[in-house]
């Protein structure tokens, strides 16, 4: 018992030492940039699954997350954070990847609900993915089926803390550095063409 505790303690210390190292390696400008990134978050809410219904209360009068500097935007170009709010079918995944790649860096992803962690209640489904982090960089998981709005707010607060203190390696950095891994996973499911193929334009006219 004692031995295990010491081992755990040492491991915890070494982990903390690592994060301290990251913290101290930041320049003043990086610290300021991180502070502003944490203080102002534009969210593109990718509503998939039942999590989509938990998001409106977070953004409106009841829970009012604008207090924390979090606001919704209409397009991924302007967004810093994407919330993927539940299971992703293969068809949805294409759009999620497309949306993620349209966002400009620094960008973060919050995965909402158990379905994004291990498939949740769709654990044996043939056409939903089980782990979102195999396809895009995920920064924060909010577990639950479904998580309450308070849990999502807690997720935002934790993400803001970790951005401010620079305690995690952001998902977009991992995505950029290990792109071969993510691309292989995407291609395994979706084939070579991971981008959505548009056969009709917005006016409903057939292009082919």
């Amino acid at each position: 018992m004692q031995k295990g505790f010491v081992a755990y303690n040492n491991e915890q210390k070494s982990l903390e030492a690592e994060t301290e190292g990251i913290k101290n390696s930041q320049t003043l400008i990086q610290k300021a940039m991180n502070w502003f990134s944490a203080r102002s978050m534009f969210v593109v809410a990718y509503g998939t699954g039942c999590g989509a219904i938990e998001m409106p209360p977070v953004f409106t009068s009841r829970y009012d997350i604008e207090r924390l500097g979090v606001v919704g935007v209409a397009t991924p170009r302007q967004a810093d954070i994407m919330i993927v709010s539940g299971y992703c079918s293969l068809k949805t995944l294409r759009r999620v990847i497309r949306t993620y790649e349209q966002m400009s860096e620094p960008k973060y992803v919050i995965a909402l609900g158990s379905c994004t962690i291990n498939g949740g209640m769709y654990w044996d489904s043939y056409n939903t993915i089980k782990k979102l982090e195999e396809y895009i960089g995920v920064d924060m998981y909010v577990a639950g089926c479904m998580p309450r709005p308070e849990a999502l707010i807690e997720g935002f607060v934790k993400l803001q803390e970790s951005i401010r203190n620079n305690t995690i390696q952001p998902g977009y950095v991992k995505y950029r550095e290990d792109y071969a891994y993510y691309q292989a996973n995407q291609e395994k499911l979706l084939g070579k063409e991971t981008q959505p193929v548009y056969e009709e334009d917005y006016a409903g006219m057939n292009l082919s």
Partner: peptide, 28 residues
């Protein structure tokens, strides 16, 4: 926000948004 029955963001929030956007990359 007060009209909607919310607290709303801090007064300086628009400055934070502006400065943050100036530090972001442009992907297009």
């Amino acid at each position: 926000a007060r009209v909607h029955g919310r607290f709303g963001p801090s007064l300086a929030q628009s400055f934070y948004d502006s400065i943050k956007l100036f530090t972001k990359d442009t992907s297009t």
